[in-house]
Each structure stands twice: as C-alpha cells, then as structure tokens.
C-alpha cells in the first residue's frame, strides 16, 4: 500500500495509526522514503509501533518521486526483503517522501495507493487536482481539526475532490485524534480482500 502526498500532510501519522490497528490483524511492515535522513523510519521506531527490523528506510538521491515512480528498484529491494520476513500474505505500507501533487506510485511497486492532503495546505488543493488527487485509489483529507483555524472549508474540499475523482473514494480524517482512521482501515482491508480473491 503506497501512502503519498505533500510535505507534512500527515503520512507518517497515518502510517503509525494504521500500524497500531493492523499489527494484531496481519503480518505488517513499513518502508519509508524520506527526502532527508531516516526521520520517518526513526519516528515509527520511537513510537514502537513495529519491530525495528520491520521498518526499512530507502535513500532517494534527492528525488523522492523518482524512487516511487520512475525507478522503483531500491523500493522493490526493500519490499522484497520485508516480504521474505513477513510472508506474501502480509501488508507493507510504503510511505513516500513529502512531494508535490504530481508524485504518485508506480503500480509496479504497490497494489493500491492512498494520497494524503491536509486542510492546512489550503482548500484549493483538491480543486487543483494532479494525478495524486485525481487518480489515487483513496484520497484522504487530513487535519480536519485545523479547518476553522486556517479558514478552510472542508465541505468544499470534499465536494471538489469528488468532482475530479468520479467514483473513487474520499475520506476526511483527523489522524491526530484518530477520527476517520477506522474508515481508512476498513477501506484498506476490503481492498486487500479484493486483491486476494
């Protein structure tokens, strides 16, 4: 499962929240593609959501979008190593480095992808579109709690998103308090069941 989206939108927070819920349900591992350092991987290790050896950090050579889309070799190496450890039946969450609205995952690397926006980035973002917003398998609009503070109209964002995405799903979350995360989890599990059948 790829998890992409702009810098700071809450990708790692979502990965951590999903790990908390998934770890007793399925074999689980995480790959991070931080643009700099191993920040995301370290965060997850410190949160103690997974065994340290079930989290791998990939170096992206200044180009996080290249590493998840055009040249997926290093990510495939990481995913294959983890698959060996947890089995083909497990779930591997691949977090992209924070990037722009055009950065999406290659389906040579992942089966499904979530694109995470946050309301603090401005409620225009869903309207602007780009492949992450229009084509991701699930669009998550995060940090709904911040909407009143930044003057963002969540309803508008959701309807803009639905307008450009057709029948593809959109969910609103406040990952920080856990709101909406169970819905993301339910979507993930149903997609997993579909891809296995």
């Amino acid at each position: 499962m790829g998890i992409g989206g702009p810098v700071g939108s809450g990708k790692t927070a979502l990965v951590a929240a999903l790990c908390h819920r998934l770890r007793n349900m399925v074999p689980l591992a995480v790959v991070t593609n931080d643009i700099y350092t191993t920040e995301d991987a370290d965060t997850l290790r410190h949160l103690g959501v997974l065994n340290a050896d079930h989290i791998k950090a990939v170096r992206t050579g200044c180009c996080p979008h290249t590493a998840i889309r055009d040249d997926i070799a290093a990510n495939l190496d990481a995913v294959e190593d983890l698959e060996q450890m947890i089995g083909a039946d497990g779930v591997i969450l691949v977090e992209s480095g924070g990037d722009n609205l055009t950065a999406t995952f290659s389906y040579g690397l992942i089966d499904r992808q979530i694109f995470v926006l946050d309301v603090a980035g401005g409620d225009k973002v869903a309207r602007k579109g780009g492949p992450g917003v229009t084509r991701s398998d699930l669009l998550v609009v995060n940090k709904v709690d911040l909407a009143p503070l930044v003057g963002a109209d969540v309803g508008r964002m959701l309807s803009d998103a639905h307008a450009v995405r057709g029948s593809l799903p959109v969910l609103a979350t406040t990952v920080r308090s856990g709101e909406g995360v169970d819905e993301v989890l339910a979507w993930l599990m149903s997609e997993r069941a579909l891809s296995r059948s």
């Binding site: 990939v58 170096r59 992206t60 050579g61 180009c63 290249t66 590493a67 055009d70 040249d71 997926i72 070799a73 290093a74 190496d77």
Partner: peptide, 12 residues
C-alpha cells in the same frame, strides 16, 4: 539514465 536500475540514488 532513466533505465530503472536504482542508479539515480547512488553518488559513488
């Protein structure tokens, strides 16, 4: 250079 061999992330 766009051949997907992972080379883009190496600086030697």
């Amino acid at each position: 250079g766009r051949f997907p061999s992972g080379a883009h992330a190496y600086s030697s």
